[in-house]
Design a protein around this nucleic acid. Structure first.
Lengths: 143, 143
DNA sequence: CCAAAATCCGAGTAGAATACTCTGACTTTA
DNA sequence: TAAAGTCAGAGTATTCTACTCGGATTTTGG
């Protein structure tokens, strides 16, 4: 799998929840309006994030979603993995498929190494990093 | 774009050319047989590699392809870029598309940074690295 | 010189994946 | 008790991937 729009949309929504990290739930309506994400699509995305334990939902009027951990405890790796499945840069790295094209495959080792590098890097970045980065960007732009 | 089978197949073929780096051209027939890659598909791939200056072709009987540079001078970045286009981990990083979903997009900066990391890493790896890695793997397996 | 062996070139295509939608249920609270 | 919200599963249009096909062109061995 690659990093699709799902992960991007999910990350955007989680950024809002991270800034709003005070117990007040945010609804899909608000999130989709803020980020211009199609509502029913975002609904699916939030559901998957909940199934993977990244957010918690409250039903009914005034309900919505809340982060289930502190922003600094949520890595990009978790988010992407929840929405797009395990990081697999190349098709033949997909754990569902077993690439048995060649015995002594000349490329699998290198793809594995690159993939792991990417995986580790995504694991080292958290939601707080993302929002801090955006804030410093904003300063740069406005100054 | 992501890293597709095209890049993987291309890399496999280039590995053979790298080991055979002595002026003797290798034909598509030989390459596709060795790596079990569908012949007409590999044909396309080799053509693209030639258009991007990574290999040179000789026509006619006894013809085929030769690397146009030393294996240590050919980076994975070049190969992937030639076959799958510029590295764009996330759809919205695709240079063809301009992602203007949000002003002050919260995610573009982080994706850019991750993408650049990946780009740099691919740039640091060469064809010789790939075949050296495979050789050391082979030793590990047989011992 | 000519047939075979190779690449070149452009169009076309089946199947899978992405990026969504739709419908209807259930849950909570003002 | 109705409105505001999530939950759940199926369905779908479009795009992308991973190929194929047909024929032209180039080179060389015999």
């Amino acid at each position: 799998m690659r990093v699709t729009r799902k992960s991007d949309y999910g990350l955007r929504a989680l950024c809002t929840l991270a800034r709003q990290y005070n117990g007040e739930p945010v609804s899909i309506g608000q999130l989709s309006a803020e980020h211009k994400i199609p509502e029913p699509f975002l609904e699916k995305i939030m559901q998957e994030l909940r199934e993977h334990g990244l957010v918690e939902a409250t039903h009914g009027r005034g309900g919505g979603y809340v982060l289930s951990k502190r922003p600094s405890q949520i890595s990009l790796r978790e988010i992407v993995q929840a929405l797009d499945g395990p990081i697999a840069l190349v098709t033949c790295l997909d754990p569902n498929l077993k690439c048995s094209i060649e015995t002594n495959c000349p490329t699998s080792s290198i793809w594995e190494i690159i993939n792991q590098k990417l995986d580790e890097y995504l694991n080292s970045l958290t939601l707080s990093d993302v929002i801090n980065m955006q804030q410093s960007e904003r300063v740069k732009v406005s100054s």
